[in-house]
C-alpha cells in the first residue's frame, strides 16, 4: 500500500464514521434523502464493478434487487435480518452465475436487450407465481428497523463494495478486466479466460445489488413484484452511473449525489414530468458527457497539464 492510498483509506474511513452518526443528527426528510442517496450509491457502484470495465450495459439491476428483496420477504419469519442480507447476496450471485453463463453467447447490443427482457421476464414470473400459486398480492416484512438502521446497513455495504472493488482493481482479475474492456481479442491471445472473468465479476456485482435489495425490504414493509422489480430502477442506475463516469470506482458517486437531489425535487414538484426529465438526462449523458462528469474533469485536467508541460519545455 502506498502512502497516498493509506491517506485515501483513512479519509474514507473517517467519512464513513462521520456519516454513520447522521441518523443521530437528523431524521425525517433529510434522513430519507440520505437513505435514497446511499441506496443509489450502492447500486451504481455495484453496477459499475461489472459494467465499467466491460462496457456492457446491464439493465438487470431490478431483477437482482427484487431477488434480494424477496429473499428477505420469504425468510423474515425464520432467520434474523443480517443473515437474510447474506442469503440475498448468495441468491443474487447464483442468479448472476446462471445469467452470466447464458449471456456468453450474446454480445454488444444484444446484451443490453437481453438483460432488459430477462428482468421483465423475472418480474412477470414472480407476479404470476405469487397471485396464482400462493394467492396473494405480496408478502409482509415487518421489522423494527427504522430509516436510521437501514442507512447504517447501506453504509456498511457501500464500504464493502468499495473495498472489494479496490481489491479487484489490484488483483489479477481487475487487470484482466481492463485488458478485456480495451480489446477482447488481445485478452484472449494473452491467455485470459474472458468468459470466466466476466461471469465472476457479474456475480460479484449481482450479489451486491441483491444485498441492497435485501436491506431495503423493511422499508417497503409490503413486498410486491411491481415495486421490488421496478424497471425504472434499472434505468436510473444506468443514467446516474454514466453521468458520474464509470472509469473510476468512485465515479458513480459524483453522478448519484446531484441526481438524487434533483430527482427528489422533480418527483415532489412535477411528478408528471419525471419521464421527460429521465429522457433528457439520458440524451445529455450520451451527447454531452460521454465519459461522465469525472471523465470530463480528467480530460480538462489532462489538457491543462499538457499545456503546462508544453510551456515548461519552451522555457527550458
Amino acid at each position: 500500500m502506498t502512502r497516498s492510498e493509506g491517506l485515501t483509506l483513512f479519509t474514507a474511513a473517517a467519512a464513513f464514521a462521520a456519516l454513520a452518526a447522521l441518523p443521530f443528527v437528523t431524521e425525517g426528510f433529510y434522513l430519507t434523502l440520505a437513505v435514497n442517496m446511499a441506496l443509489y450509491i450502492a447500486l451504481c457502484t455495484a453496477w459499475t464493478l461489472f459494467s465499467g470495465p466491460t462496457h456492457l450495459v446491464s439493465l438487470a439491476t431490478a431483477a437482482f434487487f427484487g431477488i434480494g428483496t424477496y429473499s428477505v420477504a420469504i425468510g423474515i419469519e425464520i432467520l434474523p435480518f443480517p443473515l437474510l442480507i447474506l442469503c440475498g447476496g448468495v441468491a443474487g450471485a447464483l442468479f448472476a452465475a446462471l445469467v452470466g453463463a447464458a449471456t456468453l453467447r450474446v454480445s454488444g447490443a444484444y446484451f443490453v436487450i437481453f438483460t432488459l427482457g430477462l428482468a421483465e421476464l423475472t418480474r412477470q414470473v414472480v407476479a404470476y407465481l405469487q397471485t396464482k400459486v400462493f394467492g396473494s398480492m405480496g408478502l409482509f416484512v415487518l421489522t423494527d428497523h427504522g430509516e436510521g438502521d437501514l442507512f447504517r446497513y447501506l453504509l456498511g455495504l457501500i464500504a464493502a463494495i468499495f473495498l472489494v472493488g479496490w481489491l479487484i482493481g489490484r488483483a489479477r482479475l481487475g487487470f484482466a478486466m481492463r485488458v478485456i474492456g480495451n480489446d477482447e481479442v488481445v485478452a484472449r491471445h494473452f491467455g485470459i479466460e474472458v468468459a470466466r472473468s466476466k461471469v465472476i465479476l457479474f456475480m460479484v456485482s449481482g450479489a451486491f445489488i441483491a444485498m441492497v435489495g435485501a436491506i431495503m425490504a423493511p422499508r417497503y414493509a409490503y413486498i410486491e413484484p411491481q415495486s421490488a422489480f421496478n424497471p425504472t430502477m434499472s434505468f436510473l442506475v444506468v443514467i446516474m452511473a454514466l453521468l458520474g463516469g464509470t472509469r473510476r470506482l468512485w465515479g458513480p458517486l459524483v453522478g448519484v449525489v446531484p441526481f438524487t437531489i434533483v430527482a427528489d425535487f422533480i418527483s415532489a414538484n412535477f411528478p408528471d414530468h419525471f419521464n421527460v426529465i429521465i429522457g433528457l438526462a439520458f440524451l445529455a449523458v450520451v451527447y454531452l458527457l460521454k465519459d461522465g462528469v469525472t471523465g470530463a474533469i480528467e480530460q480538462a485536467l489532462g489538457r491543462r497539464r499538457r499545456a503546462a508541460s508544453v510551456t515548461g519545455e519552451g522555457r527550458a
Binding site: H55, N275, V276, I278, G279, A281, F282, L283
Partner: peptide, 21 residues
C-alpha cells in the same frame, strides 16, 4: 450500438413522458 441504445432510450422516455402529459 451502445450509444444508439442509450440515446434511443432517452427518446423513448422523452416521447412517452410527453404523450403522457
Amino acid at each position: 450500438e451502445v450509444d444508439a441504445i442509450l440515446a434511443t432510450f432517452g427518446l423513448l422516455f422523452l416521447f412517452e413522458g410527453a404523450m403522457h402529459l
